[in-house]
Amino acid sequence: MKVVIASGKGGTGKTTVAVNLAWFLANCGRKVQYIDCDVEEPNGNFFISAHFSERIPAFVMLPAVDQQKCTSCGECSSKCRFNAIVRLPGNTMIFPELCHGCGLCLLVCPTKAISEDEREIGIIERGMGWGGISFVHGVLNVGEPMPNPLIRKVKEQGLADHIQIIDAPPGTSCSFVETISDADLVILVTEPTPFGLHDLKISVEVARARGRSICVVINKDNGIFRPLEKFLEERQLTITARLPENRKVAEVYSEGNILLEELPDYRAHFSSIAAEVFRQSENLMHSPMGVLP
């Protein structure tokens, strides 16, 4: 089962929720895999105390043009949706930083002048953390503009017989869409601030447009930000847990510790989140889509 923890706004508590949910589920005796898809700034490994046993370089396909065979017909350039190819007479130029490696240009080239080369965009690291949690994350190369191909490859490391806790990158654009694309449940973490609400609205819209099941966790809850409560009521969103605002939580996080170990009062909230995960898992089991752990 794939559970994505996402938020839109950065700093709302995605990693806190993801790490502690993984801890809780592992302590329930479940097989858990933590997948950090925040490839631009992965940090889940610190909390999970991951020991890496494998480093796998990640490549994307990069087209290479044989200028001898190329007739400058412009088919590749006009079909490329990412504007990565420029056709000049006698010179077809590829812009690697714009190429998504989709391979369409290879298919449309009438003279087979384009071949497959590859380009390294980052690495995938795999290992184990505490409590038998299987861990995987991706680290995007510095200066690399496109996280999506790496996110896709990190997700391919998902173990089908585990509950996959997937930490999403912040934001609500391409990398978020990629991360939630096949999620069985999207847990949206928000905070009672105008910024948190603004991004929650976008996240809800995107996740619904992608047909994902959503539930909401309010972090740093103080119960007094009315616009958030109103939005959640209006959109009939399930509030799975309200994590009370507490300076101690930030202190525990900043030291790389586990909230549920340091502040056991929060366990009841994570029990509710875990229950939502199990409920979704039950639903899926009875759906024609397939069986889940």
Binding site: F82, N83, V86, L88, F95, L98
Partner: peptide, 18 residues
């Protein structure tokens, strides 16, 4: 068309003027 493209507007505009 290039003005509204998500990425690569500059290089496509360059192709257009070429």
């Amino acid at each position: 068309q290039n003005l509204n493209s998500a990425q690569g507007a500059g290089i496509q505009a360059a192709q257009t003027v070429a």
